[in-house]
Amino acid sequence: MSTTTLFAGGVAAGLLAGTASCAAAQGGLLMGLVDRHHGRDPAMVGWFLAGRLASYTAVGALLGLLGSAVSLPPQARAVLLVAAGVTVIVFAVRLMRRGHCAATPETEPPSKYKAPLLGAATILVPCGVTLGVEMIAVSSGSPVTGAAAMAGFVVGSAPAFALLGYVLRRVSRTRLARFAGVVAIGAGLWTIGAGVSLGGWSPAAAPPVSGPGAQTVTVWATRDGYRPAMVTARAGVPVEVVFKLMDRGCTGTVAIGGRDVALPATVRLPPQRPGSLRYVCGMGMYTGFINFS
């Protein structure tokens, strides 16, 4: 696949799919930046986006060159999601405490490195569509095409971040600040929940089990989750889980057995003890279970 095609595909992914998920997961970093530097908001947002473009392009090149060896495992991404959620909540609380009062001007000029560094740090806070673009960069086998795919994704999602920065500048100076803070806290809690789910740290109860076991089971990945959400298989024998992809989205990457799998794919599991095996989408939003009996 040509570099131009991958770049265009990345732009389309950023515009159509990456806008909402990435703005929610990574917007906390931008919120903290805009909230502190009112006088230079446009410049700060521009440098933030420049840092984001640089880091994504560099990581895309690394993925294309080295493949999956440089990708983060699900547990590491889960920690980053929780950290991102906490960051969003901290900045939201600051925004609510200020309320509609005018901001106090900063006595010291902002560091010229802070905005691009925060933008570059967004690569460590994964959003659902980012994982799919990273998989494309890995499969490209070329640092140039991998960088093009990731750079295109940043370009496509840039308008959403620019609009977010503009809205934050206006809202933070009005009586809507408290409402915006509540919404941001909700987004932060959602991000933390996704990280907890991806890391497997929540005591999620398995749904009721019915139907006979099988050595081959089929799961459909849809935009709204995995269907069926619970499948059964026989314990003590190898099992093949056939993941079929119906819609593109977060469920297009599944974390199972401590590794990421890009769908469609067939996952071969060794003999399992009686019990439930939990798997989750790459963003920790949707969960499924395989019950061994």
Rank of each mutant, 00 (worst) to 15 (best):
V86T: 06
G165P: 02
G67M: 04
L118N: 02
W47K: 04
L164W: 11
A69T: 14
S210F: 09
P159R: 00
T57F: 07
G60V: 12
S197C: 12
A151E: 03
G141F: 04
T266V: 12
D260H: 13
V82H: 01
A162N: 05
V133I: 14
G284N: 01
Y166C: 04
A69L: 08
S68W: 11
V183G: 07
A160K: 02
V231C: 00
S140G: 04
S276I: 06
K112N: 13
S276L: 04
P264Q: 05
A184G: 06
A54C: 14
C250M: 10
R248A: 05
L176F: 10
S142N: 06
C101V: 10
A221G: 06
T57M: 11
R259I: 09
C22D: 15
G200R: 13
S276M: 07
S142C: 02
L117S: 07
G152E: 00
R268A: 05
R94I: 00
G186C: 12
A58V: 15
G39H: 15
A149P: 04
G141E: 06
M44A: 15
G225W: 13
R259Y: 01
A17T: 13
P42A: 14
P208N: 05
V219Q: 01
L16F: 14
T130H: 10
L65F: 09
T122E: 04
V70E: 03
L269T: 00
M285P: 01
E108R: 15
R248L: 08
S172T: 11
G51Y: 07
G181C: 07
G165D: 06
M1E: 12
T4H: 06
L30K: 13
T107W: 09
V267R: 02
V93A: 10
V93E: 03
R173Q: 12
T104F: 09
L72R: 09
M285F: 05
L189R: 03
M230T: 07
A103D: 13
L53W: 11
M44F: 12
A180H: 10
V79C: 08
L33R: 08
P42E: 09
R77W: 10
P238E: 02
F161S: 02
G284A: 04
